[in-house]
Design a protein around this nucleic acid. Structure first.
Lengths: 164, 164
DNA sequence: GCGGTTTGCTTCGAATTCGAAGCACTGATG
DNA sequence: CATCAGTGCTTCGAATTCGAAGCAAACCGC
């Protein structure tokens, strides 16, 4: 086992900066969404996915895949959103097992009233701190990293484990 | 209220890429630390802070400030780490109210055995996907963003709230 | 020194997340 | 059809996080 290649000063700044920034950004956005729309980031994300889907509805598993969370987590949050009247649960017509989450008019209104401030928060927290060049650099960097991570990171353990 | 400045394609890539990447990276690192050291990211972070402090010990509030978490969260995690024998709680000699967390020999060993793999995970997940130029760009971008966010984001509500 | 405020930490209850296990339906196989 | 594996979702218990409230020690003004 060879000596590990420790991080040099720049690498360390990139890494710790990334950690702290992502944490701060997340908190900032959470705060803004909470105040203006009364929803959490996860809930906003769910509503957003539903709204951008052509049918304005998605089944639970599809939702869980698009977001990062587990199926049981989606069940919980969809229940919260249903209680709040921001979405409706429907049985899928073709498959009795499936449950569809469909955004309601009220849910759409929450998105509409929240989105502008959300975008502003993203600008204030991230984009406005950067030059246009840096924004482009960041986009490229994230594309590269994301592509690699998607292949590497195993999100949920397979159901009936049978690796390879 | 003017029309919001929606994100253009590059800005959107930067933002969503950042969100997804930070999530994936966090999971990846979490997985690695769990497997090799049997600790969570938060716990690793606590041990790391203790170890890099000159006295090898910090009081709870200082810990909470360095990490991002709340004081009660630190209480919980320090209790977990103490149960595992990775740190010891001591009364501060000069101030009866304070509790110091001091890393133990066992805790130091966990850091030593975990650190190389941790660094490798960071490289594999982030740095290896980038050119040296991009690493430098990322560091600069994170510096700029972090500086601004530190001033903007209010981490914990003031104790005796007295706004303005 | 004394009373009131502040500070440091813990305890409590609520919210959220996860994976494992369970239930119900589907679809393939004979 | 009858069976049986696979799929979609929910329920459960455990872990973690937070803020509010509570407790004790320390500090400040007099």
């Amino acid at each position: 086992m060879s000596e590990p290649r420790w991080l040099n000063e720049t690498e360390l700044r990139a890494w710790t900066g990334f950690l702290e920034t992502s944490d701060l950004l997340h908190r900032m956005v959470e705060q803004q969404l909470r105040e203006v729309g009364g929803v959490t980031t996860v809930q906003y994300d769910i509503l957003h996915r539903l709204n951008e889907s052509p049918e304005k509805r998605l089944c639970m598993t599809d939702l869980a895949e698009r977001l990062v969370s587990s199926r049981s987590g989606i069940t919980y949050q969809v229940a919260q959103l249903e209680k709040a009247g921001l979405l409706r649960r429907e049985d899928a017509p073709d498959d009795e097992r499936r449950v569809l989450a469909a955004i309601t008019e009220k849910g759409r209104r929450v998105l509409e009233t929240t989105a502008p401030g959300h975008v502003e928060a993203v600008r204030a927290g991230l984009l406005d701190s950067l030059t246009p060049d840096q924004v482009a650099q960041l986009a490229a960097i994230m594309d590269a990293t994301r592509a690699r991570l998607r292949d590497t990171v195993q999100l949920h353990p397979p159901r009936k484990a049978r690796s390879r």
